[in-house]
Write a protein that binds this DNA or RNA. Structure first.
Length: 348
DNA sequence: TCAGAGTCAATAGG
DNA sequence: CCTATTGACTCTGA
């Protein structure tokens, strides 16, 4: 249940103005202006070009307010609004049944303001890090909600949605297609009903992970250790828990399989290695520099991201650092165009 | 006060 | 231009 708490904490965080913390998290104000412009990357491949443009566009994100705030709060997840994002889709998708709030409630309650600078405070709820027993990586609801968002975000769709998707190798396409599907197709349904039906979810997840796996392999760069973890994610099929500390498998299974389990979108136990690998793969795929991703999506520095990607600590050992992984995870859950817009808009 | 976690900025290397 | 590494710093929880 602890996990639950955490999530709840996040959700409610908004009300508590957690994010303030985040905002301020740019403690020394370093991130603010400093590196942005240098970070802008240039598209390398045709496909990527779109990305590039997006990124470059980000150059002006300074004006961001105009764009981000008012228009699409949900998508505007930046450092400051990061929490809001979660809340946002939470809102959109009521499906997930939150855990016993009562239990948790006080926990996240106490810590009214807090964190002077740095730390994104969110995590202080930490409640004891759970033994790492649960594992649900479901955030699919985000997808569902996304689909809703699309409606008022047509421009992105047209602009970025398509171009980005195709990836050179089959994997890419696979990966994409499925994302697309979930986002547009099933996703819509999901939003209404129970959110992801087990089946739907599974397939989605499974496919995803699978494709990613391949990708990772293709990339191959990372140590063997990392690779092994990939599959860890959603294979209910075989009970094999991953090599290193990730405890996901079972949880997934339960989630997927369990009738209501599916609903519990809130609790997320993230397989950090898996996320790290996937992020690494995506960044490479789209030629997104770490610096950009780190700042725009995670609100962290390049060095931090690099370290996290290369040496992800097991979820159970993370405290406030979980937030960073959550953001990565969320980003992974989003459809391309949204990722792009996030990169673009979140440029604060 | 101390240890650990999480970051950052600087910097070394492709 | 990118990524990896690292020393230093802030916080937080004993």
């Amino acid at each position: 249940m602890e996990l639950t708490m955490e999530n709840i904490g996040n959700l409610h965080g908004v009300s508590h103005s957690h994010q303030t913390g985040d905002l301020m998290s740019s403690p020394h104000g370093r991130q603010s202006t400093t590196s942005h412009r240098n970070l802008v990357s240039h598209g390398r491949s045709a496909m990527v070009s779109s990305m590039a443009s997006i990124l470059e566009g980000a150059g002006e994100y300074r004006t961001d307010h105009t764009l981000s705030g008012p228009l699409h709060p949900a998508m505007t997840m930046s450092c400051d609004s990061g929490m809001s994002l979660s809340s946002t889709y939470t809102t959109l998708t009521p499906l997930q049944h939150l855990p016993p709030i009562s239990t948790v409630s006080d926990k996240f309650h106490h810590h009214p303001h807090s964190h002077p600078h740095h730390h994104p405070a969110h995590q202080r709820l930490t409640a004891g890090n759970v033994s790492g027993s649960f594992t649900l990586m479901r955030d699919d609801r985000s997808l569902a909600s996304m689909s809703n968002l699309y409606s008022h975000y047509p421009k992105d769709m047209s602009g970025m949605g398509q171009p980005l998707s195709p990836l050179s190798n089959g994997l890419g396409s696979l990966h994409n297609s499925q994302q697309t599907l979930s986002a547009y197709g099933p996703g819509a349904h999901l939003s209404n009903d129970k959110m992801l039906s087990p089946a739907g979810f599974e397939s989605h997840a499974a496919m995803l992970s699978r494709s990613e796996e391949h990708l990772a392999r293709g990339l191959g760069g990372h140590g063997a250790g990392m690779m092994s973890t990939l599959n860890g994610m959603h294979h209910h099929s075989h009970p094999h828990s991953q090599a290193n500390g990730s405890m996901l498998s079972e949880r997934d299974r339960q989630t997927a399989g369990g009738g209501q389990g599916s609903g519990s979108g809130q609790v997320e136990e993230i397989n950090t290695k898996e996320v790290a690998q996937r992020i690494t793969a995506e960044l490479k795929r789209y030629s997104i520099p770490q610096a950009i991703f780190a700042q725009r999506i995670l609100c962290r520095s390049q060095g931090t991201l690099s370290d996290l990607l290369r040496n992800p600590k097991p979820w159970s050992k993370l405290k406030s650092g979980r937030e960073t992984f959550r953001r990565m995870w969320k980003w992974l859950q989003e459809p391309e165009f949204q990722r792009m817009s996030a990169l673009r808009l979140a440029g604060k």
